[in-house]
Amino acid sequence: MDKFTQLQGLVAPMDRANVDTDMIIPKQFLKSIKRSGFGPNLFDELRYLDEGQPDQDCSGRPLNPDFVLNQARYQGASVLLARQNFGCGSSREHAPWALLDFGFRCVIAPSYADIFYNNCFKNGILPIVLDEAIVDSLFKETEAAEGYQLTVDLEAKVIRTPAGREIAFDVDDFRRHCLLNGLDDIGLTLENAEQIKSYEANRKAQSPWLFS
């Protein structure tokens, strides 16, 4: 996993509540057995006018000119601004994989669905929760100024706007530590192997039917 320390990037606004993971990456693309290559199909049904197929070359497909990520001013965005309950529905980790592959390293929203929120951290994406009013102000600023960028400083847990405003955000210490250092959860958990084994031995003694 790539480290996430500081990010300065172009912001793209996704002005829609309850964006579900079916929308982020439609089901036909879940047939891949890889973790990469989902970027061209991010928001496929909103982004293109035709129905996308797995393994298709997307460069010649008709783009939906109304979709925000197709607008020239948002090309190269790495921060996605979103509305409440972002990432609801299916647990598919293909959703953060697609966001990452497209180039997003950070999402900012008033709230997220729990599974999606977890999945982001496992893939080096920082999902930031901010008050609805602040998110609203960021939407306004993003739409008003072409080339609007934010600086996200995970070390300091703060976002800096072009005008110099600082917005503090909160994140679990453990998750922050993992992101800052690009750490693999599994390796960390296995450092507790003895504790897991001892729990397991007790459980087996108490409820042996769980181990057959």
Binding site: R35, S91, I115, N119, N123, D185, L190, A193
Partner: peptide
């Protein structure tokens, strides 16, 4: 429900 990274985590650590 869990994501794929967690599927791997459970396979590897049972936790």
């Amino acid at each position: 429900g869990i994501g794929t990274s967690e599927v791997e985590h459970v396979l590897a650590t049972q936790c």
